[in-house]
Write a protein that binds this DNA or RNA. Structure first.
Lengths: 110, 110
DNA sequence: TAAATATGACGTAAATATACGTCTTATTTT
DNA sequence: AAAATAAGACGTATATTTACGTCATATTTA
């Protein structure tokens, strides 16, 4: 059982994974911080969140796996930056999904 | 541990919960079906999905808890319909989040 | 080179999500 | 009223996510 997600359209799988990547406040906080400060994360970001360093590192990895951020090694530090082109792509995927539903003007049976 | 989600801004929590409600292809498939057919689900929807009746019922409950659909009892049947006003609200929340990030024009440290 | 620092890898415990079978309750239909 | 049908409630097994500590590796600084 589980992993029955593979039995659905790849289209739906892709979108579900996008939403999943955004389904934790810590990950949203990281993205928001990067946008607000217009900088990249180079140091210990756990000061900014109520989570341990390793947990934050794990969330950064998830964002990286989803391509929402990119990480480049700068000597002893790692620099995490927003991947704006991918984020734009994700906005389209998300908007498209909502728009298609809203455009249907489906009527409730009541 | 866990449920540290409550330590974040309610704003971020709300958005994370929205994304979580959409983070499974079965739930996206249900919403898509309701929009495409422009009808409501009144019978056994598990025929349409590679999942058992009880599992589908569980996903319907999650969509209902997130207010993305509404369920009304019609005698022996239950009628599940899209909650378009809530979906519009969610589209705004989602778009707003993406737009704020994109508007930042954050630059990568590279 | 040795010590300090940064950070991912790895392992693990606990919480939550997924999936499904069975049971219960309520409404029809016969 | 009895049988059939519909669908949520409940329990449970398994998978995944979350959270964190420790360890390993790499780079810098002293």
């Amino acid at each position: 059982m589980y992993a029955k997600t593979e039995l659905f359209d790849t289209d739906l799988q892709t979108r579900a994974e996008l939403f999943k990547a955004l389904a934790h406040p810590a990950r949203l906080a990281i993205l928001k911080y990067l946008a607000e400060t217009r900088t990249c994360i180079t140091g210990d970001f756990s000061d900014e969140l109520p989570l341990s360093r390793t947990t934050v590192s794990q969330h950064l990895k998830e964002l990286k796996d989803a391509s929402l951020i990119v990480g480049t090694i700068e000597g002893v530090k790692t620099c995490y930056c927003l991947n704006l082109s991918k984020i734009k792509e994700f906005r389209s995927l998300s908007s498209e999904f909502f728009d298609n539903i809203i455009a249907s003007e489906a009527i409730c049976c009541k």
